[in-house]
Design a protein around this nucleic acid. Sequence first.
RNA 1: CGGGGCGUAGCGCAGUCUGGUAGCGCAUCUGCUUUGGGAGCAGAGGGUCGGCGGUUCGAAUCCGUCCGCCCCGACCA
Length: 444
Amino acid sequence: MTEAVSPMRMSQYFLPTLKEDPSEAQIVSHRLMLRAGMIRQSSAGIYSWLPLGLKVLRKVEQIVREEQDAAGCQELLMPTIQPAELWQESGRYDDYGAEMLRIRDRHDRDMLYGPTNEELITEIVRAHIRSYKDLPKLLYHIQWKFRDEVRPRFGVMRGREFLMKDSYSFNLNHEGARAAYNRMFVAYLRTFARMGLKAIPMAADTGPIGGDLSHEFIILAETGESEVFCHRDLLEFDVLDEDVDHAADLQPVVDRWTSLYAATDEKHDEAEAAKLGDALVNARGIEVGHIFYFGTKYSKAMNAAVTGPDGEQVFPEMGSYGIGVSRLVGGLIEAFHDENGIIWPESVAPFGAAVIDLKVGDVDCDAVCDDLYAKLRAAGVDPLYEDRDERAGAKFADMDLIGVPWQIVVGPRGIKNGVVEFKNRASGEREEISAESALARLTG
RNA sequence: CGGGGCGUAGCGCAGUCUGGUAGCGCAUCUGCUUUGGGAGCAGAGGGUCGGCGGUUCGAAUCCGUCCGCCCCGACCA
């Protein structure tokens, strides 16, 4: 027996969906990720990503990457395991506490599974960047982190192991640092907008440095875990409308987004908010990004100086910029779902469309489906072919559950009339159109 | 880390109080019938009842201890 290599056929694809809700999952994204066969818990706060989940994770990651690249940020990759010495240099080895997973290697050397990478990136810059002429630098990587949370919960939204994009900026002076900060600010707006999310930047604690250079990016979702308040107009802003030139001065864009009231419940100022009157929106949100300027904290502590124009030693002004990539997958589901399952925005959907063969084995149905599938594949739509020998109801339920944006339903009834059913997952709208028209809609 | 809860088949659960040789639904496998929104019938497989120790003629059930997971709080990308 020869086995056809067609991984995107449901009959062969590893997609263990569940009809019932696993009892350990409390929030909707966790439940749906388990039910849709996206993840499998390994231990508390640690998950395997099954094929469907990984596809979405990769799509999210890719959008993040593209926007970082567009902002002039250069990708590199640092290890997950770091030596304790670096953290002893910065002083954080003792400060970090039990959240840091400490490991000892066979030589009895103290290591740790990185919860973040300021020390490591500073060490790299220290070693290779000696002159002010080599600055500025904006670097990032997308790597797994580990924080030994006391209480992991909400599935991938608050795991112990998580995938994070973290960028680090190195500039000669504060003005340069602000420019880097602004670039990341705008890149973040664009990143979340491309995923169909409403992300609102909110002022965050600036720590020991002070100033106005720290923002949390909160995406709005009815089931979000924190309460947020903001001016109504912020919901109308669309950064994708704007033609962003990262080389230009982005301060006006940042100003526009930060001029209106926006605060999480912790920083909520009743008096200030009351001035908004009817324009005040009370919503729920999920933090998916955090950008932060911290000056010379690490460059000084770790002696990462460059030689300035006058031969003096200059400590670079630094900032760091995080996006919780794996958390975003959960956040997206919190933002986009209904009682039947996930509703992926097309930009992050695991499949562009599903071809649903309602009567596998029927010569006509199979022929139409085979053809549609092949053409969609050729057109780069990345279709999923639902070719299992299941009842129609089971197929529909699974397709709705995993949230494929478009479904082409091919059944004997429609074929007789020369039509297929073209269904939009988000709206539920269905149309009877020819297979050719359906194809044209998805590829045109 | 404080408080609470739960560990019984892949998933959801009953059985535990009152000890007597493990059960239901879904899923899986076989057969027949069905076939446009999670089908029906018949049959089958699958469990060291979280681990260890104790009490007892006998432990899923009682006692002790350890582990795991979940929830609330404090904390966080």
